[in-house]
Nucleic acid binder design. Structure first.
Lengths: 155, 155
DNA sequence: CAGTAACCTCTCGACGATCGAGATAATCGA
DNA sequence: TCGATTATCTCGATCGTCGAGAGGTTACTG
C-alpha cells in the first residue's frame, strides 16, 4: 500500500530534519557558540566559496537579523577570533567580513566531514537510484516551499 | 559521475532542511509564538497521538529546557489558551499538559496539511522507487546521527 | 508509622540575544 | 555643493533561558 509507505517517509523526513538540526547545535556546543552564530559563519563560508565577500548588511539578510543584532553578532564572533571586520575600500560605508583561518578549518572539518560521509554512504547506490532520490527531494522541497509561501493555512 | 550526483544530493538535503525549518517558523509567526513554543506544542501533540499525557518534566526533556524555562513556557502557552495544566491525580507532584481543541485544530491544519501534501506528491512514485528513497533516507539519517554522536571532530 | 531521601514543579534574580529608534558616517545624484 | 540615500553602529528595552533554591508530594526503610 503506497499510501502507507508515503506516511512513513514523511516521518523519516522529520527524523532526518531533527538530526540535521542537531548538526548545527553540536557544532555550536563544541565551539561555545549559539545557533545564530553558526548560521552566520556558514553564511560567510558559503559566500567565500562563491568568491563573494559578505558585508554586514548581507549577512543580516542571510540570517534574518536587524542591523543592531548583526552588530552584536559580529562583535561576538570577532571577539573570539572567528571573524574579521574590514572597511570596504570602494564603498567605505560597508564592512566586509572574513573568516579566520582557524574558523574556516573548524567549519570545513565539521561540515565538510559530514558531507564526505554522506557522499560516501551514497556510493552503494546506482545512478538510477540516486536520480529517483533526487527527483523525490526536489518534489518534497517544492511542496514544502509552496506550503511555506501559501496563504495562511489555506487548504 | 556518481560522486557529483551525491554532492548535489547533499546540497538538496540542506535546502530541504532550511524549508522544513521554515515550516516551524511560519507556524510560529502565524500564531504569535516562538520556535520553542511550537516545538513544545508539537511534542504535546505527538504524545497525545501516542495516547500519553505529557507532564511538565517530560516536556522539558522533549524540548531540552530546564524546569525554570518549562514553567515559563507553559505559562506562556496557558495564557494564550493553547495548553491546560492539570495536577495528576495519581502523583500529585506532577502537572499534566493538555492541548486545547483550538490549538489541536490549528496544529492539525498546519502540520497535517503539509503531511497530506507530501504524501500526495508521492503518489506518482512506484513502491520500488519509494523503497529506494526510504533506504536512502535511513542511510543518511544514520550517517548524520553517527556524526552527531561521534568524538569531537574526529576524522 | 515516623523519618528521610528522592522527586516534580515553581519562584526569583541574572544573563544574553534580539529589536526599534535614532545617531553617525560615507556615497550618489542633481 | 547639498540633499537624499545607504550602511553600520549605539542605546535602552524586552523576552527567553538558566542556576539556585524553595515548597510540596511520594517512596523507601527501619
Amino acid at each position: 500500500m503506497s499510501h502507507e509507505s508515503a506516511r512513513e517517509l514523511a516521518l523519516l523526513l522529520r527524523r532526518l530534519n531533527v538530526e540535521l538540526d542537531a548538526v548545527t547545535t553540536r557544532f555550536a556546543d563544541l565551539h561555545g557558540l549559539n545557533r545564530t552564530d553558526v548560521r552566520a559563519l556558514v553564511a560567510v563560508m558559503d559566500a567565500a566559496r562563491r568568491g563573494e565577500a559578505l558585508t554586514a548588511g548581507r549577512l543580516g539578510e542571510a540570517v534574518d537579523l536587524r542591523s543592531a543584532s548583526v552588530t552584536a553578532l559580529v562583535d561576538r564572533l570577532e571577539k573570539v577570533g572567528h571573524l574579521r571586520r574590514t572597511r570596504d575600500a570602494e564603498d567605505r560605508r560597508r564592512v566586509v567580513l572574513e573568516m579566520s583561518e582557524t574558523a574556516l578549518a573548524a567549519g570545513g572539518e565539521h561540515f565538510g566531514g559530514l558531507a564526505r560521509d554522506l557522499t560516501g554512504a551514497m556510493e552503494g547506490y546506482t545512478d538510477d537510484e540516486l536520480a529517483v532520490v533526487r527527483r523525490w527531494l526536489e518534489d518534497m522541497t517544492a511542496v514544502i516551499t509552496r506550503h511555506n509561501r501559501a496563504e495562511p493555512d489555506g487548504a
